[in-house]
């Protein structure tokens, strides 16, 4: 049985790696099709055709796309992420600091939103149909329906502009104390928690409600089990699969999808780096960011799959 589970997990991992290769392929050729020529942009409109040709040659831009792709993949595998077109810095150096920032924001948001969302999701499922459940449902649907830039802008307007409690922009370099840190992260984290939690709450509620209506939950009730025992020991373990999948989807959003939040709060994260790279036609940077987002997504989804496999004794 254990070898079976190992082979299932192995299969998931292989699928993840293949997906990553396909995505990097797609990313590379999609970015190659972006209009405009990097050399022309870098040298400006006054550049002579000779200078442009020279630069193209130096940057390997005159080689066939397949060759460039292979060169890039080989670089990725060996840890050489290449050099930025825009400012000639190694991409690994450009990304590393930004990546840490993104992970910090994602980590703090996850720490707050997961327990918060799970608690709300589970309790509203247990108290289904009560006033509490209705209030939670209305609020989550409300939050899902309001775009995040709206939430962020409103927060800035209230807390930074009128009340002047919090800074409107995040200056990472000016953080000197824990108080500064809290002030800086408060608004981005709260906004993201709103966005991320709503999905988790709805998925958790649905999954728990489904297991709560099964005959084995009724059986537990007829054994005299308390409500908390019914939920924690009988309903939740069987709802784990869908719940971890909802978590993985929401968390992957925190890695790559927070561009609006990063822009509004001017937070120096990786998503903002990627958007800036698009503006400067910095292809290697765009490609690397895209691959990082994809890898993050795949890692989370694969972990969720593995947890779902392990938690199901029929597969064990």
């Amino acid at each position: 049985m254990n070898s079976e589970i190992a082979s299932m997990i192995g299969k998931r991992l292989v699928i993840a790696v293949i997906t990553l290769i396909i995505v990097s392929f797609a990313v590379f050729f999609a970015t190659s099709m972006l209009p405009g020529d990097t050399a022309t942009i870098l040298l400006g409109q006054a550049a002579t055709p000779d200078a442009v040709a020279g630069l193209r040659h130096a940057m390997h831009l005159d080689e066939p796309a397949v060759l460039r792709f292979l060169r890039w993949i080989a670089g990725l595998v060996t840890g050489d992420l290449g050099t930025s077109y825009a400012n000639n810095m190694p991409i690994s150096k450009l990304i590393s600091a930004r990546f840490v920032n993104t992970m910090k924001l994602a980590g703090i948001t996850a720490l707050i939103s997961i327990p918060f969302a799970l608690t709300l999701g589970i309790t509203s499922a247990v108290l289904r149909g009560t006033l509490y459940d209705r209030v939670v449902t209305v609020l989550t649907i409300g939050v899902i329906s309001v775009p995040e830039f709206m939430v962020a802008s409103t927060a800035v307007l209230i807390f930074a502009v009128y009340l002047k409690w919090l800074p409107a922009i995040s200056f990472v370099n000016e953080v000197h104390s824990l108080y500064d840190l809290l002030r800086m992260y408060a608004m981005p984290v709260v906004t993201l928690t709103f966005v991320v939690s709503a999905q988790i709450i709805r998925m958790t509620r649905a999954a728990v409600i489904e297991t709560l209506s099964t005959p084995y939950v009724e059986m537990a009730l007829l054994k005299g089990a308390s409500r908390s025992r019914i939920v924690l020991r009988h309903a939740l373990p069987n709802a784990l699969g869908p719940i971890v999948n909802a978590l993985a989807l929401s968390l992957s959003y925190l890695i790559g999808g927070v561009i609006i939040i990063e822009t509004i709060f001017n937070y120096p994260g990786i998503a903002k780096l990627m958007v800036d790279a698009v503006a400067t036609r910095d292809l290697p940077l765009i490609q690397t960011c895209a691959v990082i987002f994809c890898a993050g997504y795949l890692i989370l989804i694969t972990i969720a799959d593995i947890i779902a496999i392990i938690s199901n004794p029929r597969l064990r």
Partner: peptide, 13 residues
């Protein structure tokens, strides 16, 4: 209580 369908009344996990 002994349920109608024991297969459904046992928690699978």
């Amino acid at each position: 209580y002994v349920p109608q369908s024991a297969a459904a009344a046992f928690n699978p996990s």
